[in-house]
């Protein structure tokens, strides 16, 4: 490719950076606000860089509020949902792709049908069901609720991933002496891993950020996740604790950023390329 002329390159760079700035400005503002002393917060004109940096809001959040409980709840909730969804969806997708039984296609489409219902419609019935099975006000109720809408999507995502894995690979493993489960574990699982990881990420983010179900199904501090917990604790009709809210937001975002950074390689690598000729 011919290198672009200087003015053109400059223009492109300026445009690109403008977009980047627009996207990251709220995030930067969040971080900056979280380390500003209370006195500096509402100063006019606002200062972009704080005069003094303080971590008192973080300290207050960790020491004086139930933030850590919420954080632990969110972590338990997101991890359990992800594990449950991935185990069921991986095996389910494998079954939908590899085994033939009557109604297989119908089943696959029916799974997607559950997506047509708006979640608001399901909240009340779900709440009543949770009450009747004695799960109301528990993290487990949220795990079940999130699974109901994360699982269909995960199934479809993994199904298309599995369909892309050549059947010959599995046949070869069977002939080479593996059992069905052995062949799945040795050959299918490593091939589907990028798909499984992206599905897991999707599910984790969904469970981590969900608000509506958490608000309706759980109303005790013992079981509240971060989303509703932070709102409940810092935003009241009379006052919004901006400094604490921003500090909480930064800490809520950290796990996702860490996970993304860690797994990025898996998502982009051409893991299964070139395995089969033809």
């Amino acid at each position: 490719m011919k290198p672009a002329s200087f003015p053109r390159q400059l223009l492109l760079n300026v445009a690109a950076w403008a977009v980047v700035l627009a996207v990251i400005f709220p995030l930067v503002w969040m971080v900056v606000t979280s380390v500003k002393p209370q006195a500096e917060l509402f100063r006019i004109p606002p200062s972009f860089l704080p005069d003094a940096i303080t971590f008192e809001h973080y300290w207050r959040l960790l020491a004086e509020t139930p933030f850590l409980t919420y954080f632990r709840n969110s972590l338990v909730l997101a991890v359990s949902t992800t594990v449950l969804v991935i185990v069921v969806a991986t095996l389910g997708a494998y079954s939908l792709v590899r085994f033939s039984y009557p109604g297989r296609e119908t089943l696959a489409q029916l799974v997607l049908f559950t997506y047509l219902l708006p979640s608001v419609v399901l909240i009340i019935p779900l709440y009543l069901m949770m009450v009747s099975v004695g799960l109301a006000n528990t993290i487990a109720s949220l795990v079940v609720a999130y699974t109901t809408f994360a699982l269909p999507y995960a199934l479809w995502l993994l199904r298309s991933f599995m369909a892309g894995i050549p059947e010959d690979l599995e046949s070869a493993a069977l002939v080479d002496g593996a059992s069905r489960i052995g062949a799945f574990w040795d050959v299918i699982f490593p091939q589907a891993l990028p798909g499984i990881i992206s599905t897991a990420l999707f599910t984790f983010i969904l469970a981590w950020n969900e608000y509506l179900y958490a608000l309706v199904l759980v109303n005790s501090d013992q079981a509240r996740p971060l989303t509703t917990g932070v709102m409940n604790m810092l935003i009241t009709s009379f006052n919004i604790e901006w400094s604490l809210l921003m500090a909480a937001s930064v800490m809520m975002s950290l796990p996702l950023i860490v996970i993304f950074t860690f797994l990025q390689g898996y998502l982009t690598s051409g893991f299964g390329a070139g395995g089969v000729k033809g």
Partner: peptide, 17 residues
């Protein structure tokens, strides 16, 4: 697995990983 056979596939079916 229990037939004591070995097979070469048209696609070769080598395990990519």
């Amino acid at each position: 697995a229990k037939r004591d056979i070995a097979m070469v596939f048209q696609s070769y079916a080598l395990y990519p990983h």
